[in-house]
Amino acid sequence: MRVVFMGTPAFSVPSLRALTREHEVVLVVTRPDAVRSRGKRLEPSPVKVAAEELGLPVLETSRMTPEALDALRAADADVFCVAAYGCILPEAVLTMAPLGCVNVHASLLPRWRGAAPIQRSILAGDAETGVSIMRIGQGVDTGDYCAQAATTVAGKTADELTAELAEMGGELLVEVLPAIADGTAVWAVQDESKVTHAAKIAKEELRLDPAVSALENARRVLASSDAAPARCVLAGKPARVLAAVVSDASPVPAEGQITCAGKRVLLGCADGALELVSVKPDGKRAMPATAWVAGLQGKAGSWERLS
């Protein structure tokens, strides 16, 4: 099968690699080089890097210009496969390939339509999430789906869950493409009564807060990323919390207080304690929480939400 693939971040790469094993990928479309880390240099998208390693032709565009549409027509593909491309596709693209546009979405639709389904599933305390293979329509993630695969959420970071779902999505995509091609795929219409929306994560949402539960704070840490880190003020200084878990230690520190119980560093929350595992104080390297608290020389004190 002749395939045009559209994707940009690391999540997209397993789908591209899976398609390349099973089909003829005739064109890869990705967003242009951009500043993607803390440096100021332009960097290629992970999909562009992978496509070049695989020897595939690459089209870089952030919107469907007349030139981009011409390139898509010239590819003469049977199907367009999309995984986190990051561009709204016009009707001309959706109907160009005989088999249409098929998307790998990182949730069990209709739950978590939108930009941040993985982080939202963590923050909401979902027992499971997964991937859906869906048709792309005019609405955001509103299309019918023909296959889903699930995995558990608890205890996994956003990065871990993203990597797992990326692999699942790629394998599921190549598994169902033959059925899509021969018309035997069974498409399910999304139940609008069960829809939830996964809005982009704002940095403020992941700030840790002694006034909320230890579990809520732990979920914010799991859902955090370089783009939206879990941060707070520890002993008067801003810091990023890299890893933390709900603690069953006793006695529980008072809300907003920091205590040490053996080698455990505990933050008092509204209903219990959050145990710090690793932190990165602003301007310093990442370190185990025990090393951080040792540097305070017994003056741990209190913690608070970053304003």
Rank of each mutant, 00 (worst) to 15 (best):
Ala51Pro: 08
Glu304Tyr: 00
Gly125Pro: 13
Ala202Val: 05
Gly130Gln: 04
Ala116Arg: 00
Glu91Pro: 05
Phe11Cys: 02
Thr8Cys: 02
Ser307Pro: 14
Arg231Ile: 02
Asp70Val: 09
Gly183Ile: 14
Arg305Lys: 12
Val245Glu: 15
Arg240Met: 14
Lys263Gln: 13
Ala227Met: 00
Arg285Pro: 12
Thr65Leu: 00
Leu208Gln: 15
Thr65His: 01
Pro44Thr: 08
Leu215Pro: 04
Arg231His: 03
Ala83Cys: 14
Ala188Asp: 14
Arg240Thr: 15
Thr8Gly: 04
Leu99Gly: 11
Leu274Ile: 12
Ile201Gly: 01
Gly55Phe: 06
Ile201Thr: 14
Ser225Lys: 03
Asp191Ser: 05
Val195Glu: 08
Leu19Arg: 06
Ala286Asp: 11
Ala235Pro: 02
Ala270Leu: 14
Val3Phe: 07
Glu22Thr: 11
Ala71Arg: 13
Ala149Phe: 06
Glu24Gln: 12
Phe5Leu: 06
Ala127Trp: 11
Leu27Ala: 11
Gly125Tyr: 13
Pro281Val: 08
Arg63Thr: 07
Val4Lys: 02
Ala223Pro: 12
Ala235Glu: 04
Gly130Pro: 04
Pro210Trp: 14
Cys81Gln: 02
Val93Leu: 02
Ala116Asn: 02
Thr259Gln: 11
Leu56Val: 03
Gly183Gln: 13
Lys48His: 07
Glu67Thr: 07
Ser193Trp: 04
Pro9Lys: 01
Arg219His: 13
Thr61Ala: 06
Ser247Asp: 13
Arg111His: 15
Leu296Asn: 04
Pro281Ser: 09
Met168Trp: 00
Leu208Ala: 15
Val212His: 12
Glu53Met: 06
Ile201Gln: 03
Ser278Lys: 07
Met96Phe: 11
Ala71Glu: 13
Ala199Phe: 15
Lys40Asn: 12
Leu54Tyr: 04
Leu296Met: 08
Pro117Ser: 07
Ala286Ile: 05
Cys81Asn: 01
Thr151Asp: 10
Ala50Trp: 07
Glu128Ser: 12
Gly137Ala: 02
Cys269Trp: 13
Asp159Ser: 10
Ala218Arg: 15
Val93Trp: 00
Gln138Asn: 08
Gly295Ala: 09
Ala223Asn: 09
Ala227Val: 00
Ala228Cys: 12
